[in-house]
Amino acid sequence: MLLANRSELRSSADRYVSRRIESRRDKLRERRREETQQELDDLEAYAEAERERIETFIADDERKAKAGSDMDLAIRRQRDRLSKLEERIENRRGELQRKAQVISLAPEVETVCLAIPM
């Protein structure tokens, strides 16, 4: 009788712990998804603003070149900056996508303590 009660108690406790872990894991997964999406949105906003800024420099340098100034080196440097920006953005986007794919594993119960008041 006592063994059956202990088994039922153990099963009940395992089910409770499993439900709690699953609930917390779902909440963490949703929070991670929201945070990752916000970071991606921020990254895209930054990338667009930086692209526009560099492209403005390039356009200004090209106008100066048409006016007769030697702007080849400056234009190449700005295009190189733009290329490096795109590379950094792609790397960061990949990092964020990997971060979003991390899956939390449920912990395993190692020991159980049953306390019975006397």
Rank of each mutant, 00 (worst) to 15 (best):
M1F: 13
L2K: 14
A4H: 13
N5S: 14
R6N: 15
E8L: 13
L9C: 05
D14R: 04
Y16F: 13
R19E: 14
S23K: 10
R29L: 10
E30F: 02
R33Y: 10
E34S: 08
E35N: 05
T36S: 10
E39M: 11
L40Q: 12
D41I: 05
E44G: 00
Y46L: 01
E48R: 00
E48I: 00
A49W: 04
E50N: 05
E52M: 08
E55F: 00
E55L: 01
T56V: 08
I58H: 02
A59D: 10
D60C: 00
D61T: 01
E62K: 12
E62Q: 10
E62C: 01
E62F: 00
A65I: 02
A67K: 04
A67I: 03
G68V: 06
S69R: 07
S69W: 06
S69I: 01
D70K: 01
D70F: 01
A74C: 03
A74R: 09
I75D: 07
R76S: 13
R76D: 14
Q78C: 01
Q78F: 08
S83Q: 13
S83P: 04
K84S: 14
E86Q: 08
E86R: 06
E86Y: 05
R88G: 07
I89P: 01
N91I: 13
R92S: 06
R93V: 03
E95G: 08
L96G: 02
Q97S: 13
Q97G: 09
I103D: 12
S104T: 11
S104E: 14
P107I: 05
E110Y: 09
E110P: 03
E110C: 04
T111L: 08
T111E: 11
T111N: 11
V112F: 04
C113K: 12
L114S: 06
I116L: 14
P117I: 15
M118I: 13
